[in-house]
């Protein structure tokens, strides 16, 4: 695996674009196909490709498995936090209309934030699961 030059160079070319594409899917999900679930999975797939080509040690140096569970929890809390903020502003849980002066703007902010929470959680959980299997394989 370490000696496969073609694979390594192609992966090196592809990985930045995969990660960039994940961010595009994340933030353009309102207008075209995409959203937090897809972006999270694509982002995780980029890192997984890196780990498969360069080996587990290198991947751990890039993204440590230790920081992933707190990040995943942060994603869920960000989602729930948006709901709590809308409650504090006098609405129902997850009522985005109250997040800004204009209800449609509020909806935009709400959707952006909760999609971000979903994306963060999905990406870090997929990576956590992959690392758990990789670690057993060593």
């Amino acid at each position: 695996m370490q000696r496969d030059f073609v694979l390594r160079i192609i992966a090196k070319l592809l990985i930045p674009y995969i990660l960039l594409f994940a961010l595009y899917v994340q933030f353009h999900g309102d207008f075209g196909p995409g959203g937090g679930f897809q972006a999270g999975v694509i982002f995780a797939a980029g890192i997984i490709l890196y780990a498969l080509v360069n080996g587990f040690e290198q991947a751990v140096r890039l993204v440590s498995p230790r920081i992933l569970p707190p990040i995943a929890a942060f994603g869920v809390l960000l989602y729930g936090g948006v709901g709590v903020v809308s409650m504090l502003r006098g609405g129902a849980f997850l009522d985005y209309n109250l997040l800004a002066h204009d209800p449609v703007h509020g909806q935009h902010y709400g959707i952006l934030l909760i999609e971000l929470g979903v994306g963060i959680t999905v990406a870090s959980i997929m990576l956590t699961i992959f690392y758990a299997f990789m670690e057993r394989n060593r």
Partner: peptide
């Protein structure tokens, strides 16, 4: 189904 797929892989 979109959410079910991601939950399905988990």
């Amino acid at each position: 189904i979109l959410t079910a797929i991601v939950v399905g892989v988990a």
